[in-house]
């Protein structure tokens, strides 16, 4: 790549658009070229803003409605294709019309023969019009009962402090939160929809009701893409072994947030700890990510305390619920 070409890659740095090879080419060139390095450093401010998924959504909204199919049709190639298709349809129509005219005498002969009583068709082949209207309404079977249930939600947390019944709050969703009863109801709805939305997909089973109603923490699962950028995972998120995830969290009150991961042998391991301010977003863990190299169900626990909480791990390992003014969210992620 020439210097001019590499400079054109600058625009892709802040948005995380560059491929691995493009990033390498850009950074190598920047190490040799002070002007390019300075330009890259200036892009850093933009990159920080665009790291926030909320900011991205705001900008996408500001860009206006997406170009519709008619606008795409205005492109020359699309017009050429549309013209070609129209020509094929016209020619096809003419050929069909001519072939019908040839076949017409045969039809007249057939009309002259007395009609025979039609053999009874199997029920499945009967025309729809013959079927009573009420019989055509197909009642969908109820969704299968939810099987994934947070052990923590049922066993460890005091029932009185939950924002929603524990058995209603597990389900597949990439976005979770604990903003009270209304939000819990939405999570239940998401959970019930999940089997229909992604019947074959390996999914993130997020158990989100295991927390006190106040204070609350909201989180969004972020999935690392091929460029190493963490972006919000789709709601029907499918995670595979090797995927790397982070949580974007927002606390409703200031305090200290701990993210734990349950290990089979070692109990609860602290993944990240972060002092948080009310209403501000943080990404946990700040470096690396939650991942699994093999298919497994990973259990996470997000706990908001009033201050740095050294005793928490020992309490969790002992099977105690995070109590005493703490809020906790149990998150189960299934890697397939």
């Amino acid at each position: 790549m020439s210097r001019e070409e590499i400079q054109k890659l600058l625009g892709g740095y802040a948005t995380g658009t560059l491929s691995e090879a493009e990033r390498r080419a850009l950074f190598e060139a920047a190490l040799e070229d002070q002007e390019l390095f300075d330009a890259l450093a200036k892009e850093e401010a933009l990159r920080e803003v665009l790291e926030d998924p909320t900011a991205r959504r705001q900008l996408i909204a500001a860009l206006g409605p997406e170009r519709g199919w008619w606008n795409r049709m205005r492109r020359p190639l699309a017009l050429a294709l549309a013209g070609g298709l129209a020509a094929v349809l016209i020619v096809g129509g003419l050929v069909l019309r001519n072939s019908r005219q040839v076949a017409r005498p045969e039809a007249m002969v057939a009309d002259a023969i007395a009609p025979q009583p039609r053999a009874a068709l199997p029920r499945a082949m009967e025309p729809l019009a013959a079927t009573p209207r009420q019989n055509r309404a197909v009642r969908l079977p109820p969704p299968p009962a939810l099987q994934e249930r947070s052990e923590l939600a049922t066993a460890k947390l005091p029932a009185g402090s939950l924002a929603a019944p524990a058995d209603q709050a597990s389900g597949a969703a990439a976005i979770g939160g604990l903003a009270g009863a209304a939000e819990s109801k939405k999570q239940v709805a998401d959970a019930r929809r999940a089997p229909l939305m992604a019947p074959r997909a390996a999914k993130a089973a997020v158990s989100a009701a295991a927390a006190t109603a106040i204070p609350a923490v909201e989180y969004t699962l972020l999935l690392r893409n091929s460029d190493g950028v963490y972006l919000p995972a789709a709601e029907s998120g499918v995670f595979h072994a090797g995927d790397s995830l982070r949580l974007q969290v927002r606390a409703r009150q200031s305090g200290y947030l701990n993210l734990f991961r349950r290990e089979r042998q070692a109990g609860w391991n602290l993944v990240a700890g972060q002092s948080v301010e009310q209403g501000q977003s943080y990404v946990l863990p700040p470096a690396g990510g939650v991942q699994s190299d093999t298919p497994e169900r990973v259990e996470l626990l997000l706990v908001l305390s009033g201050s740095a909480d050294n005793a928490l791990k020992a309490e969790l390992d002992a099977g105690a619920a995070p109590a005493g003014g703490r809020a906790a969210i149990s998150i189960a992620i299934e890697f397939r």
Partner: peptide, 13 residues
């Protein structure tokens, strides 16, 4: 605007 939208949606070049 179209290009920016696709970039913000996480598409690569």
């Amino acid at each position: 605007r179209e290009l920016m939208r696709l970039k913000l949606q996480g598409k690569n070049f």
